[in-house]
Design a protein around this nucleic acid. Sequence first.
DNA 1: TATTGTTATACTCTATAACTATA
DNA 2: TATAGTTATAGAGTATAACAATA
Lengths: 145, 145
Amino acid sequence: MTVTSPDTDVRDLAATLERVVTMVRRMMPSQAMSLTSVSVLRSLESAGPTRLTELASSQGVTQPGMTQLVTRLERDGYVERRSQHGDARVVLVGLTEAGEEFLRQRRELRTQRLDDLLRTLPADDRSRILDAIPALTMLASLGPQ
Amino acid sequence: MTVTSPDTDVRDLAATLERVVTMVRRMMPSQAMSLTSVSVLRSLESAGPTRLTELASSQGVTQPGMTQLVTRLERDGYVERRSQHGDARVVLVGLTEAGEEFLRQRRELRTQRLDDLLRTLPADDRSRILDAIPALTMLASLGPQ
DNA sequence: TATTGTTATACTCTATAACTATA
DNA sequence: TATAGTTATAGAGTATAACAATA
């Protein structure tokens, strides 16, 4: 069993990622909606109508938690509950037009703000960030779930 | 090397950062403590005892919100309320030994997990991420404080 | 009996409004 | 009166336990 201590670079990256998380959270005024809720909407957008249980497990929340999250999203008009032909127990959750529009606008705002920030960075810093996009995406995909 | 249009790059970066946020959130067992609470502890660690009002404004929460957050942190032993000599209205919030230890352990765990992930990445992806650290730190510091 | 989802209940986190104590 | 902080109250978000409906 080899216990190598992570080097300074990794420590720095961990600290940096934490600051990035804080920045991203503050950049989006979507404090009106939790990250989990947004994640559900994005998932529905890319995967189409999905069963409640599957949403719960893929988002790492409990089934009752997802029931309540979906209830709030439904109340706000972003999703709708549908039934599945052939199994009356199943609840399919689908994105509404308002839900799609919400994602579009959020994406637009987010991109605009990030663009504003990037423009204030020196060109070489901006390049280093943009060059790291595929690697960061891969890193993110490796995380828990 | 950035070959695509800046607009598309920024869109990609926004999407990537969102995935990174999700990954970081799931990587840290921070479900036990809110990001704001951790941010307060880190601030106290670097700046020393701080007035409650100042914590509230720097963290972007209300004064009552900070009162309650500090009350929870105090109950859990991570911070303590002190009085300021000369003005009996003021509450100075300071980090306890347990608070310092909490940050140390959290940092250790976080770094270890990130290191595990990075080791599974191809070397050039890892390099691109590490090369972007200073730029990402700068980007994060530009965000809405 | 197993699966799907909801209801009941409780705790964290955060907001606004009203309040107390001190300056 | 102004400032620093707390208390009261409410809603979002999430958990566990108990429940109902369907397979």
